[in-house]
Amino acid sequence: MRSVKQKTGAVSLALLLLFSTLSFAVEMHYCGDHLVDLGIFRKASTCMMQDNMPHVDGISSTEEEMMDCCSEIQLVVEGQEDLNASFESLSLQQQVFLISFAYTFVLQPELSKEQPIDALRHPPPKLVEDLYLLNETFLI
């Protein structure tokens, strides 16, 4: 039972580390209000409208942007980069806590398992004198 819990914990911690360090980009190409292409881990391809736009020399850049109906949106999810935490960077109290926690729960020494006392095999001792009468203490 303990090995199953350890394996499950190890796999879950490995997956947590994987997903916390994973980084990716999503690129979307819109033509007007319609999504033309979605690219995960790659560049989104453009539509034919943007490729066929004629470039006229007499038009200013703002007029050209107004004629252009296509837009690119890029979402970048960056993962954690710094994972090198050293034991020496911890304070003395944190080091003592980690060592005692690891010894107590992970490296726990096998204690001798004592058998419970069986009351049926070992009856209580015989009553020699009645102590309540001897000390004259009565519940009223």
Score class of each variant (00 low, 15 high):
1 M>A: 13
2 R>D: 13
5 K>H: 10
6 Q>R: 12
7 K>M: 09
7 K>Y: 04
7 K>F: 05
8 T>C: 05
10 A>H: 09
10 A>D: 15
12 S>A: 15
14 A>T: 03
16 L>Q: 11
16 L>C: 05
16 L>I: 02
17 L>A: 08
19 F>E: 08
19 F>G: 03
19 F>R: 12
20 S>M: 14
20 S>K: 10
20 S>C: 08
21 T>V: 12
21 T>L: 14
22 L>E: 02
23 S>G: 15
23 S>W: 03
24 F>A: 14
24 F>K: 00
25 A>D: 12
26 V>M: 12
26 V>T: 14
29 H>L: 09
29 H>G: 00
30 Y>Q: 02
31 C>F: 05
33 D>K: 08
33 D>C: 02
34 H>Q: 10
34 H>R: 12
35 L>I: 05
35 L>T: 00
36 V>T: 07
36 V>P: 00
37 D>F: 15
38 L>W: 12
38 L>Y: 14
38 L>N: 01
41 F>T: 04
42 R>S: 09
42 R>D: 08
43 K>D: 10
44 A>M: 12
46 T>H: 11
48 M>A: 12
48 M>S: 13
48 M>T: 05
49 M>D: 07
49 M>A: 09
49 M>E: 08
50 Q>W: 07
51 D>L: 14
52 N>E: 10
54 P>E: 10
55 H>V: 10
55 H>R: 11
56 V>T: 12
58 G>N: 03
58 G>P: 00
59 I>L: 15
62 T>I: 08
62 T>Q: 10
63 E>L: 13
65 E>G: 02
66 M>I: 09
67 M>E: 10
68 D>L: 09
69 C>E: 07
69 C>L: 11
70 C>Q: 02
71 S>V: 04
72 E>T: 08
72 E>Q: 08
73 I>D: 10
75 L>N: 03
75 L>K: 02
76 V>C: 03
79 G>W: 04
80 Q>T: 01
81 E>D: 05
81 E>M: 15
82 D>M: 08
84 N>S: 11
84 N>G: 01
86 S>R: 09
87 F>T: 03
87 F>R: 05
87 F>K: 06
88 E>V: 11
88 E>G: 01
88 E>K: 07
89 S>W: 01
90 L>T: 02
92 L>E: 07
92 L>Q: 13
93 Q>H: 06
93 Q>C: 01
95 Q>S: 04
95 Q>Y: 07
95 Q>P: 03
95 Q>K: 15
101 F>C: 08
102 A>L: 07
104 T>R: 07
107 L>Q: 09
107 L>S: 13
107 L>I: 01
107 L>E: 14
108 Q>A: 15
108 Q>E: 11
108 Q>W: 00
108 Q>F: 01
109 P>M: 06
109 P>D: 13
110 E>H: 06
110 E>Y: 02
111 L>V: 12
113 K>R: 12
113 K>T: 15
114 E>Y: 06
115 Q>G: 02
118 D>S: 15
119 A>L: 09
119 A>S: 10
121 R>P: 00
122 H>R: 10
123 P>H: 02
124 P>H: 01
125 P>K: 07
125 P>R: 07
127 L>V: 14
129 E>A: 02
129 E>F: 06
131 L>Q: 03
131 L>G: 00
132 Y>S: 05
135 N>A: 01
135 N>H: 13
137 T>D: 04
139 L>C: 03
140 I>P: 09
140 I>C: 07
